[in-house]
Design a binder for these strands. Structure first.
Lengths: 289, 289
DNA sequence: GTTCCGCATGAATCGATAG
DNA sequence: ACTATCGATTCATGCGGAA
């Protein structure tokens, strides 16, 4: 098993003791790597596991009928490593099998509740640029589930960190304070201030809802991630504070670590495929400040 | 049991034999009234049943734990009265019980599949102006499930009836097509447009997705239902044609009948509360053409 | 610097064809 | 009959080069 550790100063250091956020990547099977993590050590788990029948080369192409069986032991380990006031956000969507939506996600929720998880909420990720196509009996699938699970009812939630500007203008431009927006604006100006989105903080900010609207990232040819960096960023801001630790047990191309570093959170990523680990490392070097 | 029947000419009559759409309201208990309907007679069922613990005075306040048990016999009757090529759209959302989303909707889907329903699709109704409020551990709930069930895989779907304007991207992109674009065939490209881009010229309507964005109807003082008329209207256009019959077994204030009449569809509504039946009648007189 | 345009690229689904 | 593979369908987005 290879382990990659990256430490980056993420802000201009004003004092010597400003904490540095660290990203650690385990290049290993998910269940194996999780055994290395101590109990109650993670503040937020956010992941998008391989969907049924996807990524066959890496994960053996889990059959829809076997999905719950496959994921359950992982869910048990995640329950162990999460802190009592932490949160687990699971991005998932059932596929169509024989003309019907398969029920493995419904079954998974029930199974996870049996092992002690609380099913606190279901967010909707609404994707405007979903996969194209036309069928006689079905429209394009433009949404995925973001299931929120907790260990206890007293979990940390920092709602003020994800407030959005009010009004129609904000709908199109500044929807969810996505990291890409923030970074683009920052890079244009140079300093951490200037034309930053945070300038708008304080003017008619409202709390968002449980519907998250973000486009997928499809044109990045180096990796096939559909997880836009704004998605983990949103939940990291919502459920953790600076210096906390974020875990993604199916890291893929490293999106969760990139988002974490840019927000001064430590992160642990697990990814079985070497080439994805390398890719993650490259992205962390390139896309973090 | 009272029955109200309303027949309205819904368009300027050009010929004597233009069919008139009819709305029929059964003021009765849902299961009782359904017994009056023959097998395989309904083209579309669309309804928003009382949610758990809602409308307690009317339905005895169905407890979340008893929800599946309460709805199952109704679902069986609905299966009986629906035509083989018809569709059942169920608007529902689980409520929060003791800090968790309750699982009665998940269980209901599984139970309905056991009795023969196909769970074809789950649409999301994204509510732009959802109920205001703030809670320490939860955002405002801005979406509801619209579960599509069918009896067979060969159901009627009239997709062209609900097409929407194309996104702005096409205006800038397809204004001036170069000659190469007009001639381009799939020799160059393996995926993506593949075909000729000029196919898109003049095209201004596209098919929607399975995310339905509609605002809730505000300021409706007399009834608590937040079913906007646009919601049944969308599904009526999508799943029925003129002259078909639409059923709403929990009519409430009559929204489904209003939408049906305005689209020249016959409708049958069932509502146990007399005052709701009266209200429905008034709305039908007032809000239909 | 800014806007415009060309182009590739999707956690998809269905139906037909092949073993 | 049952599974595996393949082609056709479709629309919003970001990147990079050009005006």
């Amino acid at each position: 098993m290879n382990t990659i550790e990256l430490t980056k100063p993420t802000r201009p250091l004003l004092f010597e003791d400003i904490p540095k956020a660290t990203a650690k990547i385990y290049c290993d099977d998910c269940l194996n790597a999780l055994k290395n993590l101590p109990d109650n050590s993670i503040d937020l788990i956010i992941t998008s596991p391989p969907y049924a029948d996807q990524r066959a080369s890496t994960y053996g192409g889990i059959k829809p009928d076997k999905y719950v069986e496959w994921f359950s032991p992982i869910a048990k380990e995640l329950l162990r490593v999460l802190k009592d006031d932490g949160t687990f956000v699971l991005n998932i969507k059932e596929k169509v099998v024989d003309g019907e939506r398969h029920t493995y996600v419904l079954e998974l929720i029930q199974e996870m509740r049996k092992m002690g998880w609380l099913w606190t909420e279901e967010f909707v990720w609404s994707k405007k640029n979903c996969f194209p196509g036309k069928w006689p009996n079905r429209f394009r699938d433009a949404w995925e589930r973001l299931l929120q699970f907790n260990k206890t009812k007293n979990f940390n939630m920092y709602q003020d960190e994800v407030r959005i500007p009010i009004g129609d203008w904000s709908k199109s431009r500044l929807k969810n304070l996505s990291e890409t927006d923030k970074k683009r604006d920052n890079s244009k100006v140079g300093s951490g201030f200037g034309k930053n989105i945070s300038n708008w903080v304080g003017r008619d900010m409202v709390y968002p809802t449980n519907v998250v609207c973000l486009p997928t990232e499809s044109s990045n040819k180096s990796h096939s991630a559909v997880f836009p960096v704004g998605l983990p960023a949103w939940f990291i801001k919502l459920f953790t504070k600076t210096g906390d630790t974020v875990l993604d047990p199916f890291l893929g191309s490293g999106t969760t670590c990139v988002a974490s570093l840019n927000l001064d959170r430590n992160s642990i990523g697990i990814e079985i495929l070497d080439e994805y680990c390398k890719l993650a490392q490259e992205r962390i070097n390139k896309e973090t400040k």
